[in-house]
């Protein structure tokens, strides 16, 4: 602690910062700012949802039953679990336990992949019954005595457009998150992180939690009510 910052200059400290602490705080603040841009990006879609729901509440209540709450609920738990493993990862990074950090990062990756797989089956299940976003929307087919054609009502297309756009952009964020986690895991396996420097893990964690939070809201709004 005692030395002048320019003397004991750690490898990760960039030249224009005075201390690691300043660099860490700056990076974290930058990430929070980025996160609110993400929130505002999604807020546009939440606004659309709110407006169209308030205009056509009965349509939204009817057609949202097409979405399977079991799949959505399962995915909610999966994402929550992945948030938990990220938080654990940071905990172990702070305690210099690189092995457990890597284990938790890999677990997070697995959860993220499970989420996408479930999403894939959800989407293809919808497509099979002609439930597409936009002009191609044409619900048909009978499953377990449930005639999809009954969902072919005005503004049902809007609900599914909003559903696909929201979950689609969310899924895009999950995919980006997977990419970043792979990179972080590789860096962790090279032993780059320690209690002294784990900024990238912390920032990726923040991003990932936000992806989780968005889903926490998407799930009840789209699947349940």
């Amino acid at each position: 602690m005692a030395s002048h910052p320019l003397d004991g200059h750690p490898a990760h400290l960039e030249h224009h910062f005075v201390s690691s602490e300043q660099q860490f705080d700056a990076a974290k603040m930058g990430m929070w700012l980025f996160l609110i841009t993400e929130i505002l990006l999604f807020s546009g879609m939440f606004v659309l949802y709110t407006v169209y729901r308030s205009w056509h509440p009965e349509v939204f209540a009817l057609v949202s039953e097409v979405l399977d709450w079991r799949m959505g609920g399962f995915n909610t738990l999966v994402l929550l679990a992945s948030s938990f493993t990220v938080a654990l990862g940071i905990h172990y990074a702070q305690k210099n336990d690189n092995r457990k950090l890597i284990i938790n990062l890999v677990l997070t990756l697995i959860f993220a992949l499970i989420f996408l797989v479930v999403k894939y089956f959800e989407y293809t299940g919808k497509f099979a019954h002609g439930i597409y976003p936009g002009a191609a929307f044409d619900p048909h087919g009978i499953v377990d005595g449930l005639d999809y054609a009954k969902y072919n009502v005005p503004y049902a297309a809007q609900f599914f457009s909003i559903y696909f756009v929201m979950t689609g952009i969310h899924a895009f964020h999950v995919i980006v998150g997977i990419g970043v986690f792979i990179w972080i895991t590789l860096r962790a396996s090279r032993g780059e992180f320690s209690a002294a420097y784990y900024t990238p893990v912390e920032l990726t964690g923040l991003y990932w939690h936000l992806v989780d939070i968005i889903w926490i809201f998407l799930f009840p709004l789209l699947y349940l009510i």
Partner: peptide, 12 residues
Amino acid sequence: MSQAEHHIVPIK
């Protein structure tokens, strides 16, 4: 270094 002083959230 200073990052070691960050709050560590307990596993509990």
